[in-house]
Nucleic acid binder design. Structure first.
Length: 209
DNA sequence: CTATGATCATCC
DNA sequence: GGATGATCATAG
């Protein structure tokens, strides 16, 4: 399936309620009393008829699927609720590869982002807001590259290294813990709301109309 | 257990 | 409200 084809398919979902889609595709939202935090993404993958897997390489060949939650501020405006996980940070890999060969850039260039509105709780209905692809402008490219190199330099620094990475780093892209249980041993690249705002127009809301 | 999916809980 | 670290489901 081509990226453009996938975007088209996903855009058919705009305005639909995610919980309904989840039950339709048999995606787990609740397991006992716990929430499956990746359910939203699974729903979209199911919609495209894709299998769930955890490979770091793009599942769909030429592109990557991502989803991001949006929330309504008191003013009624829409805002990003969370940062978006991009890809795992492999210390060795990052140290060896320049930005242009990195997983980070590869993922960003192939990403297809599904924005969806959420309430104050998981039980609140969630509607698909929009579907969009990432297009890095020169400015953005340089900015992201700077963040990547910042992480890279930290890893290369004998006095710092992998454990020195924290979510405080990075302007557009931040390194952050991501793993099971306390004391996560792994880190991943996350896109800050600031970065996402460059691609997603929050002033356009299907609901507010 | 680790990697990927993305959100929850908590601190400021 | 925004940012940072922790957490849960699924697949191998």
């Amino acid at each position: 399936m081509e990226r453009r084809e996938a975007i088209k398919k996903l855009q058919e979902l705009v305005g639909q309620e995610l919980h309904e889609l989840a039950s339709e595709y048999g995606v787990t939202i609740y397991r006992n009393d716990k929430v499956n935090k990746g359910w939203a993404g699974h729903v979209f993958e199911r919609h495209l008829g894709l299998p769930l897997n955890s490979a770091q390489c793009p599942n769909f060949g030429s592109w990557e699927l991502k989803s991001i939650p949006l929330k309504f501020k008191k003013s009624g405006e829409l805002a990003f609720k969370e940062t978006m996980a991009i890809t795992m940070i492999d210390s060795v890999n990052v140290c060896q590869k320049e930005f242009e060969d990195s997983h980070l850039l590869a993922k960003l260039k192939k990403a297809v982002i599904v924005a969806r509105t959420v309430g104050s709780h998981v039980d609140q209905p969630s509607y698909i807001h929009s579907v969009t692809g990432i297009e890095l402008s020169e400015e953005l490219y340089e900015a992201v590259k700077a963040d990547y190199n910042f992480v890279r330099n930290t890893l290369l620094d004998p006095k710092k290294g992998f454990n020195a990475l924290t979510g405080k780093m990075g302007f557009y892209i931040q390194p952050r813990t991501k793993g099971q249980g306390h004391g996560s041993t792994s880190r991943a690249f996350y896109a800050r709301p600031r970065f996402l705002a460059c691609f997603i127009n929050l002033s356009v809301s299907p609901q507010a109309g």
